[in-house]
Each structure stands twice: as structure tokens, then as C-alpha cells.
């Protein structure tokens, strides 16, 4: 589609290059995503998942790897089926099988994968210092199933932080839906109403810059 160089590894044969997986982006840059990209991918992915809930009967599935998160040229982010989804189709899949997956379980898995993308390349004994709002978002996303609303006190009791931190926790103590995640991502911006355009632009730039880098590296080779 871009007319030059080989396609990004992993692209399906044929067709235009209109999407990249988060895994391809990480591999190409060989570094983690930045915080703004994490907010944007969360927002955009939850937006598409939310649309899918209302517009189709597509089964919910957990996010098992960054390869499933697809960033599109136009800034959309979607969740693809695993490359090999036989695992999820086994009768033994049970709780983790996508046919029984709840929205909070999808959010949990998305939070984990987003964190791993932020943590990409770091050693086991190293931890990235995240901004408190993003860390709290991911923390709550990844713990949604256990938290289940009533366990919120556990977080607050464990963190005897400043009052404004307590307020922040209260705001994000109840992530139960894609909409909740999107609201929190929007609240991260100075003007919440700009969230759709802003996060789409961030993801569009992520796609475009990754393709530029790929083209550049191809020419160098």
C-alpha cells in the first residue's frame, strides 16, 4: 500500500498495510510504548469493544498477547482473534474461554497487555515508574475481577496516600465496563470532550510513525 519496501513482519499476505499489531510496533521500535500511547490504545480499544458489544453477537475474548491488538491507519484500535485460537475453543477453556468471558475479564486482560507494552524490554528486577493516574488505571483494570466493586476498601486501606490520591482512587474504584475505562481516559485530558479526536490522533500517529520507521529501516537495509 505504501509502495516501498517489504511489509511489516506478520502482515497477512496480500492486501494493503492498513493495520499493525501492538506487538509489531514494539518489535520495530524495540522499546515500550509511551504513556500517552497507552492511554490512547486503552481508549480506542475499549471504544471498538464497546461498539462490538452493541452491534454484533461477536463473543468476548480475553486479550492474550499484544499481537491481538491492532492499530489501524485511521487511528482505530481493534481486538483480533488470536492467531491460533484453538486453545480458546477447547471445551476445557472454561473460565478463560471467550464464550464465557465477561466484560470485566476482557478489561483485566487488556490492562495486563497494556502494562506489558509499557514494560517491554525491561529486566525482571526493573520496574518502570508510571505516572500515578496511569498506574492506577492499569492497576484497577487488571484487578477488576477480584475487586468486583466491594473490595475497593482493600486498595484504599493499602495505600495511605494523600487526600487527592484518595479522591483519584474513588474516581476509578469501579471499573466494570469499557465505558468506565473510556471515561477515565477522557478524564486524563484537560478537556474531556476532546478525547475521541485526541486519542484517535495519537493512535493514527503511532501507526504512521511506525510505518515511517519501517520504511526507513528497510531503505537502510
Amino acid at each position: 500500500a505504501d509502495g516501498e519496501g517489504p511489509r511489516v513482519p506478520g502482515e497477512a499476505a496480500g492486501g494493503s498495510q492498513d493495520e499493525l499489531s501492538l506487538e509489531e510496533i514494539l518489535l520495530l521500535y524495540n522499546q515500550p510504548i509511551n504513556e500517552e500511547q497507552a492511554w490512547a490504545v486503552c481508549y480506542q480499544c475499549c471504544g471498538s469493544l464497546r461498539s462490538a458489544v452493541t452491534s454484533s453477537s461477536q463473543p468476548r475474548r480475553r486479550v492474550r498477547s499484544a499481537a491481538q491488538i491492532r492499530v489501524w491507519r485511521d487511528g482505530a484500535v481493534t481486538l483480533a482473534a488470536p492467531a491460533s485460537d484453538t486453545e480458546e475453543r477447547t471445551p476445557a477453556a472454561g473460565k478463560s474461554g471467550y464464550s464465557h468471558c465477561t466484560e470485566t475479564e476482557v478489561i483485566e486482560s487488556l490492562g495486563i497487555i497494556i502494562y506489558k507494552a509499557l514494560d517491554y524490554g525491561l529486566k525482571e528486577n526493573e520496574e518502570r515508574e508510571l505516572s500515578p493516574p496511569l498506574e492506577q488505571l492499569i492497576d484497577h483494570m487488571a484487578n477488576t475481577v477480584e475487586a468486583d466493586g466491594s473490595n475497593d476498601e482493600g486498595y484504599e486501606a493499602a495505600d495511605e496516600g494523600l487526600e487527592d490520591e484518595e479522591d483519584e482512587k474513588k474516581k476509578i474504584s469501579a471499573i466494570r465496563s469499557y465505558r468506565d475505562v473510556m471515561k477515565l481516559c477522557a478524564a486524563h485530558l484537560s478537556t474531556e470532550s476532546e478525547a475521541p479526536n485526541h486519542y484517535q490522533a495519537v493512535c493514527r500517529a503511532l501507526f504512521a510513525e511506525t510505518m515511517e520507521l519501517h520504511t526507513f529501516l528497510t531503505k537502510i537495509k
Binding site: 515500550p32 495486563i112 526493573e126 520496574e127 518502570r128 515508574e129 487488571a142
Partner: peptide, 24 residues
């Protein structure tokens, strides 16, 4: 362009990385 700037600290048992690791 596209650069990630971030600080790295030692991993803590009570940190988010440890909690995420326990889930995976």
C-alpha cells in the same frame, strides 16, 4: 519522534509489576 522517556526503579514486591506478574 516516537521516543519513550521513562524512569526505571527497582522492582518492588508490592508494585504493579509484581501484581501483574502474579496474574500471568
Amino acid at each position: 519522534k516516537g521516543k519513550s522517556l521513562y524512569k526505571i526503579k527497582p522492582r518492588h514486591d508490592s508494585g504493579i509489576k509484581a501484581k501483574i506478574s502474579m496474574k500471568t
